Amino acid sequence: MAVHVRVGDDRVGTIELDRPERRNALNVETCEGIVAAVEQVRAERARAVVVTGSGTSFCSGADFGEVYGEHFTTALYAALQAVFTLPVPVVAAVNGPAIGGGTQLAIACDLRVAAEGARFAVPTARLGVAVDPWTIRRLEQLAGGALARSVLIGCETVGPELAHARGLVDRLGSPADAHAWAAELAGLAPLTLAYNKQVLDRVDLPASDPVLTGAFAACWSSADLAEGRAARAEKRAPAFEGR
């Protein structure tokens, strides 16, 4: 299988690309595997998810044996949106190069932890291809306009330290560090996290949008709110259930 998925006792789901002989390059099968993996972690009620690659690469981008086919483009953007729209925190454990589609996959996640060998690049101008407007705006949102222009127009490759300094990477560390962070996030209030994600990711919507106001109201009327209040009074860790 090109993608492995599991949900541990800590309620963290792991989605791992497993094509090390191709440096985890994305083909149609892998993209469809990501969509299926997302469905599985949803079904198993994971409270946080880690996305990573096997071996020494996170994802080397599109498999050039398939990249020029229309079916591949459809499969790629379905995979990216599946990850992006997960209602729980998604942490990219960038264990090595994340090139092209690899950078796209990393920025579809909420947070990124980069290991020493991580690299980010979107060299579309060297190939005569293009990424969709969502990718460009998402990169700009996370890393700022200057770094986005350096990557997209200057075709620069960015290492972990610069990526961290500019906000593209949230923490420097190993996949184990990424998993530990995800386990911590899995213990937080799910409704609040889902609401925060909606507001951050749907910047095109007004504050009065019913989707956002409904999610806001749900946080303030939830059993988790009562649990958080009780846990604080009783000086114990809260046990949130997402309701």
Results as ranks from 00 to 15, higher is better:
residue 1 M to T: 13
residue 7 V to C: 03
residue 7 V to W: 06
residue 18 D to V: 01
residue 19 R to F: 01
residue 21 E to S: 12
residue 22 R to W: 02
residue 23 R to N: 07
residue 24 N to E: 03
residue 29 E to F: 06
residue 34 I to V: 15
residue 43 A to P: 02
residue 45 R to F: 05
residue 51 V to H: 02
residue 52 T to P: 02
residue 56 T to C: 04
residue 58 F to I: 01
residue 59 C to G: 04
residue 60 S to Y: 09
residue 62 A to Y: 06
residue 64 F to P: 00
residue 68 Y to K: 01
residue 71 H to F: 14
residue 72 F to W: 13
residue 76 L to K: 11
residue 79 A to C: 11
residue 85 T to P: 03
residue 86 L to C: 03
residue 88 V to N: 05
residue 89 P to L: 02
residue 97 P to F: 09
residue 98 A to W: 10
residue 100 G to F: 04
residue 104 Q to D: 09
residue 108 A to K: 13
residue 111 L to N: 08
residue 117 G to E: 07
residue 117 G to V: 10
residue 118 A to R: 07
residue 121 A to F: 05
residue 127 L to Y: 01
residue 135 T to N: 12
residue 138 R to P: 14
residue 141 Q to F: 15
residue 143 A to C: 14
residue 145 G to F: 06
residue 147 L to A: 04
residue 154 G to R: 11
residue 157 T to G: 04
residue 157 T to C: 12
residue 160 P to I: 13
residue 162 L to Q: 12
residue 165 A to K: 15
residue 170 D to Y: 04
residue 174 S to Q: 06
residue 181 W to A: 12
residue 181 W to T: 02
residue 186 A to C: 09
residue 189 A to P: 09
residue 194 A to K: 00
residue 195 Y to T: 08
residue 195 Y to G: 10
residue 201 D to H: 03
residue 213 T to L: 08
residue 215 A to T: 08
residue 218 A to F: 04
residue 220 W to R: 14
residue 222 S to H: 06
residue 223 A to Y: 01
residue 225 L to M: 09
residue 227 E to Y: 03
residue 228 G to N: 15
residue 239 A to R: 03
